[in-house]
Amino acid sequence: MHRTLLAALGLIAFVLLWEAAPRFGFVSPLFVPPPSGLPSAFLREIQAGYWVSAVLASLRHYALGLALGTGLGVALGIATALYDGLDAALSWVVRLLRPVPGLAWVPFAIVWFGISETAATFIIIIGVFWINFYAAYGAAKAVDKDLLEVADAFGHRGTLAKLFKIVLPGSTAGILAGARTGLGQAWMAVVAAELFGVPGLGQRMMQASSLLATEVVVVYMITIAALYGLTDALFVQLRDRLLRWQR
């Protein structure tokens, strides 16, 4: 209760400071659009139909990119952890590709897929792939060897049996921690992926900022924050359900 109160007070103080800075002339409202102007900007965006279509388009890129990037990252991470040969074969490929920032793929995304939803999804996939790859790899490598031995002792000797009975459940916590980080990264990637012209929140932000409509930019910043907060809260629910066996 005490913490909730402090959190609310902190937020209120932040908004008040934000409002005061442009209102008392410390900065130009163009540089820091006051929060009191945001509701009307928000309403205008909704009435013009921009807001809903941008949110829907971005959610589509987000969901697809996140699902594919997480799925591929986890699958390859676990496969690499299970098969030493694959691990060895990929070790330098991974070192080569890992440090390339997501944005550096934008030119290739455009060349390969054009300015399209596929290109945007591709950027998001790259944005979350590595986090999930490393989380799953580490979690699967750290699975208790004693429990793998239990599987052996009770006749579950095949790789698939071990995968489903021990490795996957044993690395769930680590995989989900990676997936949660990816959840936030993917929203950043959505904006980056749409900056070059694919319709969505990022594109709408770009348009608004080129018109110096900074209050509209802030509306979309808050939109993204709210969407992130929502997806993260839902994810935490799911995670706690999947990990209810933990003390």
């Binding site: 004693d146 429990l147 239990v150 002792a153 021990i166 459940p169 066996w245 933990q246």
Partner: peptide, 10 residues
């Protein structure tokens, strides 16, 4: 086993 080695997720 000497230690119980139960699977904690089951």
């Amino acid at each position: 086993f000497q230690e119980a080695r139960l699977l904690p997720w089951r």
